[in-house]
Amino acid sequence: MKFGVIVFPGSNCEQDCFYAIRDILKQPAEYIWHKNTKVDAYDCLVLPGGFSYGDYLRTGAVARFSPVMKSVTRFAHRGGLVIGICNGFQILLEAGLLPGAMLRNKNLHFICKHVHIKLENNATPFTNLGKRDQILKIPIAHNEGNYYIDTKGLKNLTENKQIVFRYCSEQGEVGDRFNPNGAIGNVAGIINKQGNVLGMMPHPERSAEKLLGSDHGSLIFKSTLKWLKGK
């Protein structure tokens, strides 16, 4: 299964994603320069973390106009799998492939640390190897991870089981105390209604091997691979 990792100017997790896919998941991976518009040969597209275009305007706001994004949108509308991590998630929001928006963290600081998230929907291509309510230890590293959506939107997300991950305690308790950035509903990751586009603030590629303190993030890559193979 071939993964494409999209590189915007200012992306800085593309090599980490590439490594997680090629060296840990043992699957072919290629970089896709943001000016390249050919994405059909890939089975899954990954929008990595970083500071695309410096994020000087608003996170993801410029990147979504990159030539490759038209192709990503077409790819997603045809049912192709797309994973946006951190800045990648922010770009997917700006591109309208996922609902909602990102605000600055509640404490107005960049936060880098391990957090715990609860897997609330394991019936997705990206989480099928997980158990419902499974707790994952996985790092975050962002300045704008304070997810926001209006009440109606949040209701829709909940009803459609689009909230895939929520911040929680080590024991799995969901609550504001365990929410690092102020995200509404403690949302850490969501999926689109069709179920083929995932956006998440935590970094699965940074927790794909025990050596780095946790291998829980590999669940996302392995689930994706299993789903693609079973297609």
């Binding site: 960049f110 936060i111 590293a141 050596l211």
Partner: peptide
């Protein structure tokens, strides 16, 4: 150090807060 991204590049095997940082 929580305000610094100390994990990007996925080499940080001993994170800040110990005697020395270790990068594989």
């Amino acid at each position: 150090y929580q305000q610094y991204d100390h994990m990007v590049q996925t080499n940080s095997v001993v994170l800040p807060g110990s005697d020395a940082a270790v990068l594989r």
